[in-house]
Design a protein around this nucleic acid. Structure first.
Length: 209
DNA sequence: AGCAAGATTAGC
DNA sequence: CTAATCTTGCTA
């Protein structure tokens, strides 16, 4: 079968990312994160995200002000911010808001859609399919997202987010997890009921929106 | 130059 | 519950 063009697959435009971060975070749920082309393509439905907003957010990497490391956060909306965590895991963020305003959305979990065989090969042997992209480090490994993808333009590269018209159910908002500061802000959002969501779902603070 | 800390994960 | 593993940013 012929390869569909990137455009026909529903790639999100830059204007999608150039909005308030919490709106982008909410609207990313139900979209599809894609990396690679042809036989190397893997993708999954986004079901869990976290927002990191501005230098005033103590958990945001921009909190110390501009540095070499967090430069992507200050860049154009729609680029990727990928960094190495604990020396082991690559975590992928989508940069939001206008250049100069540091903010991003961390992608935390996907429901695998395409490239299942690739993902199984890249992840630890024996992982159930539903857990292939559960957790930010795991999904990066499944989609082969590494530091090489840092600063990649989601609007013009093989790493991108697409709208495939998937419908989702209720969205729940909770405090972000895995951080030691900024835990009071309810900036984690996930699709209620998705088996691919990481962490504990029962800490929801509100489930409307 | 040296060091502590970190948006995690897999395996005891 | 803890080791693994390494880049960054801060201090000397």
């Amino acid at each position: 079968m012929p390869t569909r063009s990137l455009r026909s697959r529903g790639r999100l435009a830059r204007s999608f990312y150039d909005r308030p971060t919490l709106e982008v975070a909410r609207d990313l749920l139900g979209k599809v994160l894609v990396h690679g082309v042809g036989t190397r393509l893997a993708s999954g439905l986004i079901v869990e995200v976290e927002a990191y907003i501005g230098e005033a957010d103590p958990a945001c990497h921009a909190s110390p002000g501009p540095t070499r490391r967090n430069a992507p956060l200050y860049g154009e909306p729609g680029i990727a911010y990928v960094y190495l965590n604990y020396g082991i895991h690559c975590l992928m963020n989508v940069v939001t808001e206008r250049a100069g305003t540091p903010a991003a959305v961390l992608i935390r979990a996907l429901e695998p859609l395409e490239g299942l065989a690739l993902m199984r090969r890249r992840r630890t042997r024996g992982v159930p399919d539903v857990a292939l992209c559960r957790g930010p480090g795991n999904l990066a490994q499944a989609l082969a997202i590494t530091l090489r993808q840092n600063h990649a333009d989601l609007c013009h590269s093989s790493l991108t987010v697409e709208d495939h018209g998937h419908g989702i159910g209720r969205i729940a908002w909770t405090p972000r997890i895995g951080i030691r500061v900024g835990t009071e802000r309810p900036w984690r959002a996930y699709v209620v009921g998705s088996k691919a969501v990481s962490g504990h779902q029962q800490r929801a603070m509100s489930n409307e929106r």
